[in-house]
Design a protein around this nucleic acid. Structure first.
Lengths: 334, 334
DNA sequence: CGTCAAGAGGCAATCGTTTACCTTCAGGAT
DNA sequence: ATCCTGAAGGTAAACGATTGCCTCTTGACG
C-alpha cells in the first residue's frame, strides 16, 4: 500500500506540487478553478498528506507535549483534559506522556519530546531536584511551562495553586471544628508542592495552636494504598489525633478506607481532609472535605503562557499561584 | 537558539555525517576510536537528533497511537497505562489522544495520527457505526487493533472481554442472592460492548427468571452524573427493583450516591453491580460488586497483535474475547 | 610480490513537503 | 504603444537524517 504523495496529486491535477500545497493549505491564493481541480484530485486519490515531511520543512508540528507523573491520578487526567481542550481552541494537538514518577523515565520522555519537535511542553515534574537537569535542558530548547509542581533552578513559567493558602483554609476550617491535634500524610518530600504543603501545614498548625505530635507526619507516596497503610499505622500504634490532613485525595481515600476497616468513625472519632477535589472525593464514605483546585483555569493559563512564548515575545517568566477554595463535605463533620 | 544538527557533530568530530549517524545508531560498525570521538562531539554539543527528519527518512516513528473515548474514565486510563508499559518493553512510545466520545473528533484524531505516521493504532472506537468510515480508512493505511469496543464491518483485530459471559456471572450471582427483578442502567446503545452487555443482561435475566419491568432499562452515558440521575428517576417514579445492574462502574457509583441521598439502603433495599472494577469501586459506600476486566492481559494482547502486524506476517485477523471474573463486594450483600 | 577480501568511512541521493524566488501574462496608467 | 504592477503558478532549494554504493586501506594467503 504505497502512500499517495503530493506529487501524485499534482500529476493528476496537472499542476505543480507547489500549487497543490498552496491550494490545500491556503498559504497563497490560487484561482478557484485550480483549487477545485486540486481538491478533486486529492479526494479521488485519498490524499492525506505527510505530517512528518511537513513538520520537517516547517520545523513546527502544531503539537504540544505534556508530561505528567501519573495518568492514573484523576487530578492529572482532569488537568490533561482541560489542557487538551484549551489547545484544541488554538488548533494544536496534545501529545501525552507519563513519567510514572520516575525521573529517569521522565528525562527519557523529555528527550523524546524534544526529538519529536513538539512546539512546546507542559510538564508537572516528578522530583524537585532530580528532575532539574532534564527539565533545564528541555527548557533551553523550546518553550516549557510547569504546572502544579515545579523544579527549582529552571527558568520557566509556572502555574499552580497557592499551597500555603490552601493549608491555611484547611487548618482554619479544622480549628473552627475544634481540632487541637493533627497528623499529616503525604508523599516523600521530593517535589515542590509536597514541600509547600507540609510547610503550610506546620505553619498554620502552629499559628492556630494545633499540636502535631511526634511521628504524626507520614511520608510515602500519592496513592490509595499508602493512605491506607499510613492510617492503619496511626491507628495501631500512635493513637489518632483529632484530624488527619492529607496531601492529596488518593491518600485521603485510603485513610478513610482504613478507618472504616478499623471501625474508626469519620467524622465522629477523627476528621479527614484531602487535596485536589477529584470526582471520587464526593463519593467516598463519608464524602471528603478537600481543597478544590481550579483545573480549568490552571490549564487555560498554562496554554496561554505557552502561546505567549510560542509567539516569542521574550518576556520574563511568570509564576502564577491561583487561590484555591475549600470544598466542605461530611468528613469534617456535617 | 539554533538547534545542533548532525552536520555540526560531523564537523566537530572531523568525520562525515554518515559516520556520525552510524556511530550513534550502531547501524553499521564503526571503529572504536571514531565512535568515541563522535560520542564526545555529540555530548559536547548537546546533540539530540531530529526525530522528525529521522522518521521521514526511515518512514517509521517507533510510536503507536492510542485513541480512547475518554481519559477521565479510570477504566481507559488503566488500559492506557498497561499499553504504554507493554509498548515500552518493545521500545515504542505511546501517543495518546482522546476522542471525547465524539465521532467527529475521533475521525479528526485518526487522520492526524495517520498523518503523523505512527506505526500503528490502538483504538477503542466511540460509536458502533458512526466511527466505521474513519476507522476503516485508518485500518487501510496502517496496522490497527481495536480494544474493548469495536465497530462492525472493519477488518481488524479486536481484543476485549466476553460481555455475555460477564453478564452471566453478574446475573447468576444476583439470582443466587434471591433477586427476582432487575433494572439495567447503561449508555446509549451506540457501541458494541454496550449492546452486548444489554443483550447479555436480557438473555440471562430471562434464563434465570429475573423480571425486567417496563421502563427499567435506562440509557444515558457512561458517567457518574447519569447514574445518579437514572437512579433518582427510578426511585422517584418506577419504584426500585431488587437489583440495579450497571454497564460500568461510573454509572454504578452514581447509582450508589443517589441511593444514599434518597435514604435507600444498599444492599438492604436494593443490590447494585458495576462493570470494569476501577480502583474507586472498592472505596464507595458500600464497596461495589463488579465485573473485573483483565486490563494487563488486554493491553499485552493488544500490543502483541499490533507487533504481529507490524512484523507484517499477513495473518487473518483475530477476535480475542477474554473471560472476565466477578469481584464480589458489599453492594450485593455482604 | 601479487591478488583478493573485508572493514571503515565518504559521497550523494532520498524521504515528502514548503517556500523563496522567478517567469509569465493580463490589464491599467501614461 | 510603452511601462508598470500584481496575481498565478512553476522551479528548485531547502529541512535533517539515513543508507546504497563506492573508494581506500590493510592484511592474509598463495
Amino acid at each position: 500500500m504505497q502512500r499517495v504523495t503530493i506529487r501524485d496529486v499534482a500529476e493528476r491535477a496537472q499542476v505543480s506540487t507547489a500549487t497543490v500545497s498552496r491550494a490545500l493549505s491556503g498559504a497563497k491564493p490560487v484561482s478557484p478553478a485550480v483549487r477545485e481541480q486540486v481538491q478533486r484530485a486529492a479526494d479521488e486519490l485519498g490524499y492525506a498528506g505527510n505530517g512528518i515531511a511537513s513538520a520537517l520543512r516547517r520545523s513546527r508540528t502544531d503539537t504540544v507535549g505534556m508530561l505528567v507523573p501519573s495518568i492514573a491520578n484523576p487530578f492529572f487526567t482532569g488537568l490533561v483534559e482541560h489542557v487538551e481542550h484549551a489547545l484544541q481552541q488554538v488548533g494544536r494537538q496534545l501529545f501525552l506522556c507519563s513519567s510514572r514518577s520516575d525521573p529517569e523515565l521522565e528525562a527519557q520522555r523529555l528527550r523524546s519530546l524534544v526529538a519529536r519537535q513538539v512546539d512546546g511542553i507542559v510538564i508537572s515534574p516528578v522530583h524537585g531536584s532530580l528532575s532539574t537537569p532534564a527539565v533545564q535542558r528541555a527548557a533551553a530548547e523550546l518553550p516549557l511551562v510547569q504546572v502544579d509542581r515545579y523544579v527549582t533552578g529552571v527558568d520557566s513559567d509556572w502555574i499552580g495553586v497557592d499551597d500555603d493558602a490552601a493549608l491555611d483554609l484547611v487548618m482554619t476550617h479544622l480549628a473552627e471544628r475544634g481540632v487541637r491535634s493533627a497528623a499529616f500524610v503525604s508523599s516523600q518530600l521530593t517535589n515542590s508542592s509536597t514541600e509547600l504543603r507540609l510547610a503550610g501545614f506546620r505553619r498554620h498548625a502552629a499559628r492556630l495552636d494545633v499540636a502535631v505530635p511526634e511521628g504524626h507526619v507520614l511520608l510515602g507516596e500519592y496513592s490509595i494504598e499508602w493512605g491506607r497503610e499510613a492510617a492503619a499505622g496511626l491507628i495501631a500504634t500512635a493513637g489518632l489525633p483529632d484530624a488527619v490532613v492529607c496531601a492529596d485525595d488518593l491518600i485521603a481515600l485510603g485513610v478513610l478506607q482504613a478507618c472504616a476497616a478499623a471501625g474508626v468513625a469519620v467524622p465522629g472519632d477523627v476528621l479527614v481532609t484531602g487535596f485536589d477535589d477529584i470526582p471520587y472525593s464526593a463519593l467516598s464514605a463519608p464524602p471528603l472535605t478537600t481543597v478544590h483546585q481550579p483545573q480549568a483555569e490552571i490549564a487555560a493559563e498554562a496554554v496561554r503562557l505557552l502561546s505567549r512564548v510560542l509567539g516569542d515575545e521574550p518576556t520574563a517568566h511568570d509564576r502564577v499561584a491561583l487561590r484555591p477554595t475549600l470544598t466542605v463535605r461530611a468528613s469534617t463533620g456535617g
